[in-house]
Design a protein around this nucleic acid. Structure first.
Lengths: 107, 107
DNA sequence: GTCGTAGTTCGACAGTCACCGTACTACGCC
DNA sequence: GGCGTAGTACGGTGACTGTCGAACTACGAC
């Protein structure tokens, strides 16, 4: 059928699809770690333009894509703005303590 | 003086030298994750030859070097055998919950 | 001394990755 | 409609990384 059934704008992995290795690989980059830290610090959604990272827009899109594919962040489209949020519930449920351990680290 | 003062055979980072990013990067590889899992499962030292990994000896040496540099594992030389152990104390002190979260993950 | 075993070192090679600039789409406002 | 802004897609490039085989060192046993 050609009607607009559900029409998911962005693809995210289901909770069961998230793997430790994918998450670790996603977090093992200074830029992505900075993104996650900012999302965790505010505890709110942040638009791409609201993230403070030392890379260009295209590179930022690249990193957000990796974080999204790994199941670390979720994206919500609203107009031309894309709001990113941390999938804390899923990560804490799958890997309890992991995210807190990473975020608590001084460096 | 040229006497044998302490004479550390293998160089490991001090606890303060360990960084989150380094640890994450070290763990973000299936082979290294398998090594860490085996070390954690037994809770004891394991010689290089006692590790079950699908790579050659030289590649295994390479991975152990990365894990050691990151401060994840410690190596102790005894004759021609090198015993590897998990630096659980240091990791738990620096990043509480991180290692447990990783190890508890089903995949 | 000789031999076998444990592990490291040294290129070399293929694949991946972070990064960028440019071009493009989509939305909102005038 | 026309324009500016938000973000994505694409193509390319340099750097890093995982992998291997072969050569090497070091220790222990015979």
């Amino acid at each position: 059928m050609t009607k607009t059934d559900t029409l998911p704008p962005i693809a995210h992995p289901a909770r069961e699809e998230i793997t430790v290795e994918g998450v670790l690989r996603a977090l093992a980059d200074p830029v992505r770690l900075a993104i996650v830290r900012q999302l965790a610090a505010t505890g709110q959604e942040i638009a791409c333009g609201g993230l403070t990272v030392p890379v260009t827009k295209s590179t930022l899109t690249h990193h957000l894509g990796i974080l999204r594919q790994a199941g670390v962040v979720a994206g919500r489209q609203e107009g031309t703005t894309r709001f990113n949020s941390l999938r804390r519930n899923d990560l804490d449920a799958l890997f309890p303590g992991l995210l807190d351990g990473v975020l608590a680290a001084p460096r």
